[in-house]
Design a protein around this nucleic acid. Sequence first.
DNA 1: CCGGTAACGTAACGCTTGTTCCGGTAACGA
DNA 2: TCGTTACCGGAACAAGCGTTACGTTACCGG
Lengths: 202, 202
Amino acid sequence: MARQRDLTAHQERISAATWSVLAEAGLPGLTLRAVAARAGCSTGLLLHTFPDKRALLLHARDLLHQRTAARADALEATGAAPEEVLRALLHQAVALGPEQHEEARVWIGFLAAALAEPELAERHVRGNRSFLRRTTRLLAACRLDWDPARCTRAATGLVALVEGLNVLAAADPATYSPDAQRHALDDALDRLVGAAGPVSPP
Amino acid sequence: MARQRDLTAHQERISAATWSVLAEAGLPGLTLRAVAARAGCSTGLLLHTFPDKRALLLHARDLLHQRTAARADALEATGAAPEEVLRALLHQAVALGPEQHEEARVWIGFLAAALAEPELAERHVRGNRSFLRRTTRLLAACRLDWDPARCTRAATGLVALVEGLNVLAAADPATYSPDAQRHALDDALDRLVGAAGPVSPP
DNA sequence: CCGGTAACGTAACGCTTGTTCCGGTAACGA
DNA sequence: TCGTTACCGGAACAAGCGTTACGTTACCGG
Protein backbone atom coordinates (compact mmCIF):
# COMPACT_ATOMS: atom_id res chain seq x y z
CA MET A 1 0.00 0.00 0.00
CA ALA A 2 0.97 3.61 0.05
CA ARG A 3 0.67 6.79 2.04
CA GLN A 4 -2.73 7.64 3.47
CA ARG A 5 -4.22 11.05 4.06
CA ASP A 6 -6.36 12.56 6.79
CA LEU A 7 -9.36 13.57 4.73
CA THR A 8 -11.28 15.15 7.61
CA ALA A 9 -8.35 17.31 8.62
CA HIS A 10 -7.97 18.52 5.06
CA GLN A 11 -11.64 19.33 4.82
CA GLU A 12 -11.50 21.32 8.02
CA ARG A 13 -8.39 23.25 7.09
CA ILE A 14 -9.67 24.06 3.62
CA SER A 15 -13.05 25.11 4.98
CA ALA A 16 -11.32 27.39 7.47
CA ALA A 17 -9.35 28.91 4.62
CA THR A 18 -12.60 29.35 2.71
CA TRP A 19 -14.07 31.30 5.61
CA SER A 20 -10.97 33.43 5.87
CA VAL A 21 -10.92 34.34 2.20
CA LEU A 22 -14.67 34.90 2.12
CA ALA A 23 -14.51 37.25 5.10
CA GLU A 24 -11.56 39.16 3.72
CA ALA A 25 -12.06 39.34 -0.02
CA GLY A 26 -15.80 38.81 -0.28
CA LEU A 27 -17.68 36.59 -2.65
CA PRO A 28 -15.98 37.66 -5.90
CA GLY A 29 -12.56 37.15 -4.32
CA LEU A 30 -13.40 33.60 -3.31
CA THR A 31 -11.42 31.67 -5.93
CA LEU A 32 -9.95 28.22 -5.65
CA ARG A 33 -6.47 29.66 -6.05
CA ALA A 34 -7.03 32.13 -3.21
CA VAL A 35 -8.35 29.41 -0.94
CA ALA A 36 -5.43 27.15 -1.80
CA ALA A 37 -2.94 29.91 -1.07
CA ARG A 38 -4.62 30.65 2.27
CA ALA A 39 -4.66 26.96 3.19
CA GLY A 40 -1.01 26.62 2.19
CA CYS A 41 -1.55 24.02 -0.46
CA SER A 42 -2.26 23.72 -4.19
CA THR A 43 -5.53 23.73 -6.03
CA GLY A 44 -4.92 20.08 -6.75
CA LEU A 45 -5.39 19.14 -3.10
CA LEU A 46 -8.58 21.18 -3.00
CA LEU A 47 -10.13 19.21 -5.80
CA HIS A 48 -8.83 15.93 -4.45
CA THR A 49 -10.58 16.76 -1.17
CA PHE A 50 -13.78 18.14 -2.69
CA PRO A 51 -15.20 17.19 -6.09
CA ASP A 52 -15.72 20.82 -7.11
CA LYS A 53 -16.09 24.36 -5.82
CA ARG A 54 -19.77 23.99 -5.04
CA ALA A 55 -19.11 21.07 -2.70
CA LEU A 56 -16.42 23.10 -0.98
CA LEU A 57 -18.89 25.92 -0.36
CA LEU A 58 -21.56 23.56 0.92
CA HIS A 59 -19.17 21.89 3.35
CA ALA A 60 -17.95 25.24 4.65
CA ARG A 61 -21.54 26.33 5.10
CA ASP A 62 -22.44 23.18 7.00
CA LEU A 63 -19.44 23.71 9.24
CA LEU A 64 -20.64 27.21 10.07
CA HIS A 65 -24.03 25.85 11.06
CA GLN A 66 -22.57 23.01 13.11
CA ARG A 67 -20.31 25.38 14.99
CA THR A 68 -23.04 27.81 15.97
CA ALA A 69 -25.34 24.93 16.90
CA ALA A 70 -22.62 23.44 19.10
CA ARG A 71 -22.14 26.74 20.90
CA ALA A 72 -25.86 27.00 21.50
CA ASP A 73 -26.06 23.41 22.74
CA ALA A 74 -23.23 24.11 25.16
CA LEU A 75 -25.14 27.09 26.54
CA GLU A 76 -28.27 25.04 27.07
CA ALA A 77 -26.29 22.21 28.65
CA THR A 78 -25.18 24.46 31.51
CA GLY A 79 -28.60 23.96 33.05
CA ALA A 80 -29.01 27.65 33.79
CA ALA A 81 -32.40 29.32 33.92
CA PRO A 82 -34.03 29.77 30.50
CA GLU A 83 -33.87 33.56 30.89
CA GLU A 84 -30.13 33.37 31.26
CA VAL A 85 -29.66 30.89 28.46
CA LEU A 86 -31.81 32.95 26.10
CA ARG A 87 -29.94 36.14 26.89
CA ALA A 88 -26.55 34.46 26.53
CA LEU A 89 -27.58 32.78 23.30
CA LEU A 90 -28.62 36.02 21.64
CA HIS A 91 -25.68 37.98 22.96
CA GLN A 92 -23.14 35.54 21.60
CA ALA A 93 -25.00 35.43 18.30
CA VAL A 94 -24.54 39.16 17.86
CA ALA A 95 -21.31 40.51 16.40
CA LEU A 96 -19.36 41.92 19.30
CA GLY A 97 -15.75 40.87 19.02
CA PRO A 98 -13.62 40.75 15.87
CA GLU A 99 -14.02 36.99 15.65
CA GLN A 100 -17.80 37.12 15.49
CA HIS A 101 -17.37 40.07 13.19
CA GLU A 102 -15.60 37.87 10.67
CA GLU A 103 -18.29 35.25 11.10
CA ALA A 104 -20.92 37.83 10.24
CA ARG A 105 -19.09 38.74 7.05
CA VAL A 106 -18.91 35.07 6.13
CA TRP A 107 -22.59 34.70 6.88
CA ILE A 108 -23.43 37.57 4.55
CA GLY A 109 -21.30 36.06 1.83
CA PHE A 110 -23.06 32.73 2.12
CA LEU A 111 -26.42 34.48 2.18
CA ALA A 112 -25.68 36.39 -1.01
CA ALA A 113 -24.49 33.20 -2.67
CA ALA A 114 -27.63 31.43 -1.47
CA LEU A 115 -29.83 33.84 -3.41
CA ALA A 116 -28.62 32.18 -6.60
CA GLU A 117 -27.73 28.67 -5.37
CA PRO A 118 -30.73 26.62 -4.24
CA GLU A 119 -28.64 24.16 -2.26
CA LEU A 120 -27.00 26.93 -0.28
CA ALA A 121 -30.39 28.54 0.22
CA GLU A 122 -31.69 25.31 1.69
CA ARG A 123 -28.84 25.20 4.19
CA HIS A 124 -29.44 28.80 5.13
CA VAL A 125 -33.14 28.23 5.70
CA ARG A 126 -32.49 25.10 7.70
CA GLY A 127 -29.94 26.85 9.90
CA ASN A 128 -32.02 29.92 10.52
CA ARG A 129 -35.15 27.95 11.27
CA SER A 130 -33.19 25.87 13.74
CA PHE A 131 -32.07 29.08 15.45
CA LEU A 132 -35.62 30.37 15.44
CA ARG A 133 -36.98 27.13 16.92
CA ARG A 134 -34.39 27.22 19.68
CA THR A 135 -35.21 30.83 20.49
CA THR A 136 -38.92 30.06 20.52
CA ARG A 137 -38.41 27.10 22.82
CA LEU A 138 -36.36 29.12 25.28
CA LEU A 139 -38.81 31.99 25.21
CA ALA A 140 -41.70 29.62 25.85
CA ALA A 141 -39.82 28.29 28.87
CA CYS A 142 -39.51 31.86 30.13
CA ARG A 143 -43.11 32.86 29.50
CA LEU A 144 -45.27 29.94 30.50
CA ASP A 145 -48.29 32.27 30.36
CA TRP A 146 -47.94 32.80 26.61
CA ASP A 147 -49.45 30.58 23.96
CA PRO A 148 -47.13 29.06 21.35
CA ALA A 149 -48.22 31.45 18.61
CA ARG A 150 -47.27 34.47 20.65
CA CYS A 151 -43.92 32.91 21.53
CA THR A 152 -43.22 32.28 17.89
CA ARG A 153 -44.07 35.84 16.96
CA ALA A 154 -41.89 37.31 19.68
CA ALA A 155 -39.02 34.98 18.85
CA THR A 156 -39.28 36.00 15.20
CA GLY A 157 -38.72 39.60 16.22
CA LEU A 158 -35.75 38.66 18.38
CA VAL A 159 -34.09 36.62 15.66
CA ALA A 160 -34.65 39.36 13.10
CA LEU A 161 -33.18 41.92 15.48
CA VAL A 162 -30.10 39.78 16.07
CA GLU A 163 -29.47 39.14 12.40
CA GLY A 164 -30.13 42.76 11.55
CA LEU A 165 -27.58 43.90 14.10
CA ASN A 166 -25.10 41.37 12.72
CA VAL A 167 -25.56 42.49 9.16
CA LEU A 168 -25.42 46.19 9.92
CA ALA A 169 -22.45 45.87 12.25
CA ALA A 170 -20.53 43.94 9.62
CA ALA A 171 -20.77 46.89 7.25
CA ASP A 172 -20.68 49.77 9.76
CA PRO A 173 -19.03 48.73 13.02
CA ALA A 174 -18.70 52.33 14.16
CA THR A 175 -22.42 53.05 14.21
CA TYR A 176 -23.42 49.59 15.40
CA SER A 177 -20.83 49.35 18.14
CA PRO A 178 -20.84 46.51 20.70
CA ASP A 179 -22.48 48.85 23.18
CA ALA A 180 -25.20 49.86 20.77
CA GLN A 181 -25.89 46.23 19.93
CA ARG A 182 -26.02 45.19 23.57
CA HIS A 183 -28.43 47.99 24.37
CA ALA A 184 -30.74 47.19 21.49
CA LEU A 185 -30.77 43.52 22.38
CA ASP A 186 -31.29 44.05 26.11
CA ASP A 187 -34.09 46.53 25.49
CA ALA A 188 -35.95 43.95 23.45
CA LEU A 189 -35.23 41.17 25.94
CA ASP A 190 -36.25 43.19 28.99
CA ARG A 191 -39.60 43.80 27.44
CA LEU A 192 -40.20 40.08 26.88
CA VAL A 193 -38.68 38.27 29.84
CA GLY A 194 -38.42 41.04 32.45
CA ALA A 195 -35.59 43.23 33.65
CA ALA A 196 -31.92 42.44 33.27
CA GLY A 197 -31.17 40.39 36.37
CA PRO A 198 -30.77 36.61 36.03
CA VAL A 199 -33.49 36.04 38.64
CA SER A 200 -36.68 37.97 39.24
CA PRO A 201 -36.03 41.27 41.07
CA PRO A 202 -36.86 41.40 44.81
CA MET B 1 -23.36 67.91 -35.99
CA ALA B 2 -24.74 64.43 -35.67
CA ARG B 3 -27.15 62.37 -33.66
CA GLN B 4 -27.16 62.90 -29.93
CA ARG B 5 -28.02 60.43 -27.22
CA ASP B 6 -30.04 60.65 -24.04
CA LEU B 7 -27.34 59.73 -21.57
CA THR B 8 -29.56 59.92 -18.50
CA ALA B 9 -32.18 57.64 -20.01
CA HIS B 10 -29.50 55.10 -20.87
CA GLN B 11 -28.10 55.23 -17.36
CA GLU B 12 -31.52 54.67 -15.89
CA ARG B 13 -32.42 51.79 -18.17
CA ILE B 14 -29.08 50.08 -17.64
CA SER B 15 -29.27 50.53 -13.89
CA ALA B 16 -32.74 49.04 -13.89
CA ALA B 17 -31.40 46.07 -15.82
CA THR B 18 -28.58 45.79 -13.29
CA TRP B 19 -31.11 45.55 -10.47
CA SER B 20 -33.10 42.97 -12.34
CA VAL B 21 -30.12 40.74 -13.02
CA LEU B 22 -28.77 41.18 -9.51
CA ALA B 23 -32.09 40.21 -7.95
CA GLU B 24 -32.55 37.22 -10.22
CA ALA B 25 -29.09 35.76 -10.74
CA GLY B 26 -27.29 37.09 -7.68
CA LEU B 27 -23.88 38.65 -7.48
CA PRO B 28 -21.96 36.01 -9.46
CA GLY B 29 -24.52 36.20 -12.27
CA LEU B 30 -24.12 39.94 -12.61
CA THR B 31 -22.03 40.11 -15.78
CA LEU B 32 -21.90 42.89 -18.32
CA ARG B 33 -23.30 40.57 -20.96
CA ALA B 34 -26.23 39.60 -18.76
CA VAL B 35 -27.00 43.24 -18.01
CA ALA B 36 -26.76 44.15 -21.68
CA ALA B 37 -29.09 41.33 -22.65
CA ARG B 38 -31.61 42.40 -19.99
CA ALA B 39 -31.40 46.02 -21.10
CA GLY B 40 -31.82 44.99 -24.73
CA CYS B 41 -28.56 46.42 -25.97
CA SER B 42 -24.93 45.45 -26.45
CA THR B 43 -22.04 45.58 -24.05
CA GLY B 44 -20.68 48.39 -26.17
CA LEU B 45 -23.47 50.72 -25.10
CA LEU B 46 -22.89 49.80 -21.47
CA LEU B 47 -19.29 50.90 -21.60
CA HIS B 48 -20.11 53.99 -23.62
CA THR B 49 -22.57 54.94 -20.87
CA PHE B 50 -20.36 53.97 -17.93
CA PRO B 51 -16.56 53.90 -17.94
CA ASP B 52 -16.43 50.42 -16.38
CA LYS B 53 -18.36 47.87 -14.37
CA ARG B 54 -17.55 49.46 -11.05
CA ALA B 55 -19.08 52.76 -12.12
CA LEU B 56 -22.18 50.91 -13.26
CA LEU B 57 -22.53 49.29 -9.83
CA LEU B 58 -22.00 52.58 -8.03
CA HIS B 59 -24.64 54.35 -10.11
CA ALA B 60 -27.14 51.57 -9.57
CA ARG B 61 -26.42 51.71 -5.85
CA ASP B 62 -26.93 55.46 -5.74
CA LEU B 63 -30.21 55.06 -7.55
CA LEU B 64 -31.40 52.60 -4.93
CA HIS B 65 -30.59 55.06 -2.19
CA GLN B 66 -32.22 57.97 -3.99
CA ARG B 67 -35.37 56.00 -4.58
CA THR B 68 -35.83 54.94 -0.96
CA ALA B 69 -34.99 58.45 0.22
CA ALA B 70 -37.59 59.90 -2.15
CA ARG B 71 -40.25 57.52 -0.81
CA ALA B 72 -39.40 58.51 2.73
CA ASP B 73 -39.47 62.21 1.88
CA ALA B 74 -42.89 61.78 0.32
CA LEU B 75 -44.14 60.15 3.50
CA GLU B 76 -42.86 62.99 5.64
CA ALA B 77 -44.28 65.59 3.27
CA THR B 78 -47.82 64.39 3.91
CA GLY B 79 -47.75 66.34 7.17
CA ALA B 80 -49.21 63.44 9.14
CA ALA B 81 -48.46 62.87 12.80
CA PRO B 82 -44.93 61.62 13.46
CA GLU B 83 -46.31 58.38 14.88
CA GLU B 84 -48.06 57.68 11.60
CA VAL B 85 -45.09 58.69 9.49
CA LEU B 86 -42.73 56.53 11.50
CA ARG B 87 -44.98 53.52 11.27
CA ALA B 88 -45.55 53.97 7.56
CA LEU B 89 -41.84 54.50 6.94
CA LEU B 90 -40.83 51.28 8.64
CA HIS B 91 -43.66 49.27 7.15
CA GLN B 92 -42.79 50.24 3.60
CA ALA B 93 -39.13 49.58 4.30
CA VAL B 94 -39.91 45.99 5.17
CA ALA B 95 -40.24 43.37 2.44
CA LEU B 96 -43.94 42.72 2.07
CA GLY B 97 -44.81 42.60 -1.62
CA PRO B 98 -42.86 40.95 -4.41
CA GLU B 99 -41.48 44.31 -5.54
CA GLN B 100 -39.91 45.11 -2.18
CA HIS B 101 -38.84 41.50 -2.09
CA GLU B 102 -36.72 42.04 -5.18
CA GLU B 103 -35.37 45.22 -3.68
CA ALA B 104 -34.26 43.30 -0.61
CA ARG B 105 -32.39 40.81 -2.78
CA VAL B 106 -30.68 43.66 -4.58
CA TRP B 107 -29.83 45.24 -1.25
CA ILE B 108 -28.19 42.02 -0.07
CA GLY B 109 -26.22 41.76 -3.28
CA PHE B 110 -24.91 45.29 -2.90
CA LEU B 111 -24.12 44.64 0.75
CA ALA B 112 -22.12 41.54 -0.06
CA ALA B 113 -20.26 43.41 -2.77
CA ALA B 114 -19.64 46.27 -0.35
CA LEU B 115 -17.71 43.97 1.98
CA ALA B 116 -14.92 43.91 -0.60
CA GLU B 117 -15.43 47.26 -2.38
CA PRO B 118 -14.71 50.28 -0.18
CA GLU B 119 -16.62 52.67 -2.43
CA LEU B 120 -19.74 50.54 -2.27
CA ALA B 121 -19.28 50.19 1.48
CA GLU B 122 -19.22 53.97 1.80
CA ARG B 123 -22.53 54.25 -0.09
CA HIS B 124 -24.06 51.59 2.08
CA VAL B 125 -22.96 53.29 5.29
CA ARG B 126 -24.15 56.66 4.06
CA GLY B 127 -27.55 55.29 3.08
CA ASN B 128 -28.12 53.33 6.26
CA ARG B 129 -27.02 56.20 8.50
CA SER B 130 -29.41 58.46 6.64
CA PHE B 131 -32.21 55.98 7.35
CA LEU B 132 -31.15 55.76 10.97
CA ARG B 133 -31.08 59.55 11.35
CA ARG B 134 -34.54 59.84 9.86
CA THR B 135 -35.90 57.17 12.17
CA THR B 136 -34.27 58.83 15.16
CA ARG B 137 -35.72 62.21 14.24
CA LEU B 138 -39.23 60.81 13.85
CA LEU B 139 -38.97 58.88 17.08
CA ALA B 140 -37.80 62.00 18.92
CA ALA B 141 -40.84 63.82 17.59
CA CYS B 142 -43.03 61.06 19.01
CA ARG B 143 -41.32 60.87 22.39
CA LEU B 144 -40.59 64.41 23.47
CA ASP B 145 -39.91 63.09 26.97
CA TRP B 146 -36.88 61.10 25.86
CA ASP B 147 -33.38 62.46 25.63
CA PRO B 148 -31.57 62.18 22.26
CA ALA B 149 -29.35 59.33 23.38
CA ARG B 150 -32.33 57.18 24.25
CA CYS B 151 -33.99 58.00 20.94
CA THR B 152 -30.86 57.00 19.08
CA ARG B 153 -30.68 53.70 20.92
CA ALA B 154 -34.31 52.86 20.32
CA ALA B 155 -34.06 53.86 16.66
CA THR B 156 -31.01 51.63 16.26
CA GLY B 157 -33.07 48.70 17.41
CA LEU B 158 -35.89 49.56 15.04
CA VAL B 159 -33.60 49.88 12.05
CA ALA B 160 -31.83 46.63 12.87
CA LEU B 161 -35.18 44.89 13.21
CA VAL B 162 -36.34 46.20 9.84
CA GLU B 163 -33.17 45.21 8.02
CA GLY B 164 -33.11 41.86 9.75
CA LEU B 165 -36.65 41.15 8.63
CA ASN B 166 -35.75 42.19 5.11
CA VAL B 167 -32.71 39.97 4.95
CA LEU B 168 -34.42 36.94 6.45
CA ALA B 169 -37.55 37.34 4.34
CA ALA B 170 -35.46 37.53 1.19
CA ALA B 171 -34.05 34.07 1.88
CA ASP B 172 -37.06 32.45 3.59
CA PRO B 173 -40.31 34.18 2.61
CA ALA B 174 -42.39 31.34 4.01
CA THR B 175 -41.17 31.70 7.58
CA TYR B 176 -40.93 35.48 7.47
CA SER B 177 -44.29 36.06 5.85
CA PRO B 178 -45.78 39.54 5.48
CA ASP B 179 -47.96 38.84 8.51
CA ALA B 180 -45.02 37.76 10.64
CA GLN B 181 -43.07 40.84 9.63
CA ARG B 182 -45.97 43.17 10.36
CA HIS B 183 -46.47 41.63 13.77
CA ALA B 184 -42.82 41.86 14.71
CA LEU B 185 -42.63 45.46 13.58
CA ASP B 186 -45.88 46.54 15.27
CA ASP B 187 -44.89 44.85 18.50
CA ALA B 188 -41.69 46.86 18.62
CA LEU B 189 -43.43 50.08 17.61
CA ASP B 190 -46.27 49.71 20.09
CA ARG B 191 -43.76 49.46 22.87
CA LEU B 192 -42.08 52.71 21.83
CA VAL B 193 -44.80 55.03 20.61
CA GLY B 194 -47.95 53.52 22.09
CA ALA B 195 -50.68 51.29 20.76
CA ALA B 196 -51.50 50.68 17.14
CA GLY B 197 -54.10 53.32 16.29
CA PRO B 198 -53.07 56.27 14.13
CA VAL B 199 -54.43 58.62 16.80
CA SER B 200 -54.50 58.13 20.55
CA PRO B 201 -57.27 55.69 21.58
CA PRO B 202 -60.47 57.18 23.13
C1' DC C 1 16.02 -1.95 1.46
C1' DC C 2 13.04 -1.54 -2.23
C1' DG C 3 9.07 -1.97 -5.32
C1' DG C 4 4.38 -0.39 -5.74
C1' DT C 5 0.62 2.35 -4.83
C1' DA C 6 -1.91 6.09 -3.31
C1' DA C 7 -1.63 11.14 -2.59
C1' DC C 8 -0.22 15.36 -4.12
C1' DG C 9 1.81 19.37 -7.00
C1' DT C 10 2.06 21.37 -11.63
C1' DA C 11 0.93 22.70 -15.91
C1' DA C 12 -2.25 22.94 -19.34
C1' DC C 13 -7.02 23.25 -21.21
C1' DG C 14 -11.40 25.40 -22.43
C1' DC C 15 -14.33 28.85 -21.11
C1' DT C 16 -16.04 33.20 -19.50
C1' DT C 17 -15.08 37.64 -17.89
C1' DG C 18 -14.16 42.82 -18.35
C1' DT C 19 -12.46 45.81 -21.69
C1' DT C 20 -10.92 47.83 -26.26
C1' DC C 21 -11.24 48.95 -30.94
C1' DC C 22 -12.95 49.75 -35.32
C1' DG C 23 -16.53 49.60 -38.98
C1' DG C 24 -21.18 50.65 -39.99
C1' DT C 25 -25.15 53.69 -39.26
C1' DA C 26 -28.31 57.10 -38.23
C1' DA C 27 -29.23 61.83 -37.45
C1' DC C 28 -28.32 66.84 -37.98
C1' DG C 29 -26.70 71.20 -40.58
C1' DA C 30 -26.12 73.24 -44.95
C1' DT D 1 -30.02 66.01 -50.78
C1' DC D 2 -25.68 65.10 -49.12
C1' DG D 3 -21.56 65.16 -46.22
C1' DT D 4 -20.06 65.15 -41.69
C1' DT D 5 -20.00 63.67 -37.15
C1' DA D 6 -21.24 61.47 -33.14
C1' DC D 7 -23.11 57.16 -31.64
C1' DC D 8 -23.60 52.33 -31.26
C1' DG D 9 -22.92 47.15 -32.28
C1' DG D 10 -20.06 43.36 -32.47
C1' DA D 11 -15.86 41.11 -33.05
C1' DA D 12 -11.40 40.55 -30.85
C1' DC D 13 -8.15 40.83 -26.86
C1' DA D 14 -5.75 39.54 -22.55
C1' DA D 15 -6.57 37.85 -18.07
C1' DG D 16 -8.48 34.95 -14.83
C1' DC D 17 -11.59 31.36 -13.68
C1' DG D 18 -12.84 26.21 -12.59
C1' DT D 19 -11.40 21.90 -13.94
C1' DT D 20 -8.55 18.02 -15.76
C1' DA D 21 -4.67 15.09 -16.75
C1' DC D 22 -0.25 13.81 -15.96
C1' DG D 23 4.18 13.47 -13.66
C1' DT D 24 6.43 13.38 -9.08
C1' DT D 25 6.87 12.27 -4.43
C1' DA D 26 6.31 10.10 -0.16
C1' DC D 27 4.83 6.42 2.37
C1' DC D 28 3.73 1.33 3.71
C1' DG D 29 4.32 -3.79 3.18
C1' DG D 30 7.24 -7.29 2.29
